[in-house]
Design a protein around this nucleic acid. Sequence first.
DNA 1: ATGAACTTACTCAGCAGTAAGTAACTTGTA
DNA 2: TACAAGTTACTTACTGCTGAGTAAGTTCAT
Lengths: 214, 214
Amino acid sequence: MAKRQARSRPETLRKRAEILHAAMEIFGAKGFANGTLADIADQVDMTHAGVLHHFGSKTQLLLEVLTYRDETDVADLVEQHIPGGLELFRHLVRTAFVNAHRAGIVQTFAVLSGESVTDDHPARAYFQERYRNLRAEVGRAFETVCAERGVTAPDTVGHASAAILAVMDGLQVQWLLDPEAVDLGPASEFAIEAIVSAVLDPRPPAIATPDLPR
Amino acid sequence: MAKRQARSRPETLRKRAEILHAAMEIFGAKGFANGTLADIADQVDMTHAGVLHHFGSKTQLLLEVLTYRDETDVADLVEQHIPGGLELFRHLVRTAFVNAHRAGIVQTFAVLSGESVTDDHPARAYFQERYRNLRAEVGRAFETVCAERGVTAPDTVGHASAAILAVMDGLQVQWLLDPEAVDLGPASEFAIEAIVSAVLDPRPPAIATPDLPR
DNA sequence: ATGAACTTACTCAGCAGTAAGTAACTTGTA
DNA sequence: TACAAGTTACTTACTGCTGAGTAAGTTCAT
């Protein structure tokens, strides 16, 4: 493919990044379907045609927003170190506390992940893979911890991994809707603790399981 | 207010209900912003103007869809009986298993609740109240159980109530995106068990809490 | 004959994407 | 170094469509 020395111009790269930031904000505030290119363009003092010059289409812009976020997130993590084992759970709790001060980003992901389950949504594949990876990562942390303790990991690990991510996301939604009523950090911490405990040292059912349509 | 004998015509009431069903389906499949009145009208063999004749506006239709769903849900529950105490948790687990066979309804609520956190979304107030009520209901169940056991309810009840709803919602999203990878019923059951246990009979932290930005 | 339940036909606005032009910058070449 | 040729980063102006809401007319039941 033709190499594009264009992309290397620092001024241009800065502008692209500026657009990506604005897009994150707008898609977070209004959703992908409802947010417009003009909204985004306004925030960076451009016309919507200028935005399209850089990204080709609205869908393409969304996809680049998502991967951009991942890249910068990963950059942060690698800078420090990728946590595993028990340290991962601590990291998740820490993230929940940090998120309580970043409503913007939290909203972007909450809105887009909800929207992504609609038919043929352009971000569907992205979120599908994202959850797959995160579940695997959390699952691996459970395995590590169990190995360290010399026990084999129970088969609840799969459920627990999904549940930890689920509870974090679900609490974010409730918190965004009603910040007074939900305390994001502590509630996440409590739930993660509960789930990790249930895996690492299981107890008899507290609520005898009902007779059911399985 | 003036009683509307118009509304009482059975044929008309049936048609309204038909429209509400179609709207639930469309808003669930495409979201509120992206689903159109024409989509809905098609499903009930009408023009979109016909739909507007019944509901006045798209927003009004959405609001009636939401309350309609609640009314029929409540009707079902009252038919049986509103569960409290431990029975409520069993009911929630049962619901999760049942939901695994109702992707349509699950998707509607997942999509709309996600969308509702956007600025000025017409369903925002609805979901805000819905979660408020549900948290209160779950909280009351915890109180009941604790009272039955002669202990005072711990202050983790608030976190736990939010977390139970959160984990159910979050698992639904992951399940909708990837039904092969997430087993909705069992995963919900596991998580609810874990959280209830943590409230009713707390244990020392499994993951020593980190030093943090509270 | 009145009003409810529509349809047809329209308006009007918003939006993604395109086309064509322009100014500024980069690059190759003498 | 200087200037022509090409490329990039836009803008303005437009197209073409979609979609909510409205208005006026038609049919049908009571």
